[in-house]
Design a protein around this nucleic acid. Structure first.
Length: 305
DNA sequence: AATATCTACAACCGCGGTCCA
DNA sequence: GTGGACCGCGGTTGTAGATAT
């Protein structure tokens, strides 16, 4: 952060002289030093004992989302994007659960990614982010394209190259170095829009990726209790993801048909506790899911529903 | 160059769950 | 059983930097 003292006190917190707003370098150091000595947890007492005029909640958030040494900074990689889409389709907005499968990423970061990138595209398409149309679009366009790009990047960089991920914008400009720059745009676009796709036929017909799906449940081979508009319709306990082949059902053809030995995201999940994503060498970040023509076509299809 | 708008992200808030006296 | 303290989660807001006008 900028280190400016822009904090303020409010209302009932005045007498406690609690601080709010951006953390200063001094506060960060105090928190880091205290946790290094005493460990984390018991946040309220930690805040007091560390001499921080912050709430325990604020200390916890600062530590977990920013100061923790294993927090991964930088752009969301393609694999991470794919994983987020996959897991969100299962669990909805259960960010902390999703974050468990992305080492070093925080629930806050994933939540922000979803809101700023994914919802932006839903807005572009003039449809609700939880609508079937948008979910189909993610499933038929975005995810296959991500897989394509992952493959393309792997072919270019080799499996163990560290790629460069550069973006600008927002309150931070982040550059991770170490390999060839893939750029922020736009090698996504060589994958054409599936002209056969319509929201109508998406339900039960094969698309150009060889997918035969009727819904996410079929798609993932997962029993789904309630597949209505509820974004949270996958209850975590109903999903067997711990190494079974629920994601390698025939309905995953669109992934395997891309030539990627993509044992679903299960493998990612299983490996994640040890896996550093950067080792894939695919640090690219792209939110260009489709070009103008794509958007136009999709908007027409949606508006004709 | 100045201003407006957009974008990404850090931080806060409210709520529900858990623990414990 | 219950009430308070604490914790963690998801939703929302504030703001700095980038970009457009």
């Amino acid at each position: 952060m900028d280190g400016n003292n822009t904090t303020k006190s409010v209302n009932s917190e005045d007498e406690l002289d609690l601080r709010r707003g951006p953390w200063t370098v001094e506060e960060d150091l105090a928190l880091i030093n205290y946790i290094a000595t005493h460990g984390e947890g018991r946040w309220n007492s930690l805040a007091r004992c560390a001499g921080l005029k912050r709430t325990g909640k604020s200390c916890r958030l600062r530590w977990l989302n920013y100061l923790r040494p294993d927090v991964r900074r930088g752009n969301i990689t393609l694999e991470e994007q794919l994983l987020i889409l996959e897991l969100h389709s299962r669990w909805g907005n259960r960010w902390s659960k999703i974050a468990q499968y992305l080492p070093g990423r925080t629930d806050n970061e994933i939540k922000n990614y979803w809101r700023t990138r994914v919802q932006k595209h839903a807005k572009q398409l003039k449809c609700d982010v939880n609508s079937k149309q948008f979910k189909d679009t993610m499933r038929y366009l975005w995810m296959p394209r991500l897989v394509e790009r992952i493959q393309a990047a792997a072919a270019t960089n080799g499996p163990h190259t560290t790629a460069t991920a550069t973006t600008s914008g927002g309150s931070g400009t982040t550059t991770a170095t170490g390999g060839p720059t893939m750029g922020y745009t736009d090698n996504f676009m060589h994958a054409p829009v599936n002209s056969n796709f319509t929201p109508e036929n998406s339900g039960n017909s094969s698309d150009s990726y060889g997918t035969q799906v009727s819904d996410f449940g079929d798609y993932y081979g997962i029993p789904v209790a309630n597949q209505s508009v509820n974004q949270d319709y996958y209850q975590g306990d109903q999903v067997n993801y711990g190494g079974d082949n629920s994601l390698t059902s025939p309905n995953c053809n669109y992934l395997t048909n891309q030539g990627m030995d993509f044992q679903g995201v299960d493998n990612y999940m299983e490996q994640n506790s040890q896996q550093q994503w950067s080792s894939f060498g695919l640090g690219d970040t792209t939110d260009n899911l489709w070009n103008i023509e794509d958007i136009y076509v999709l908007q027409q299809q949606f508006s004709n529903m």
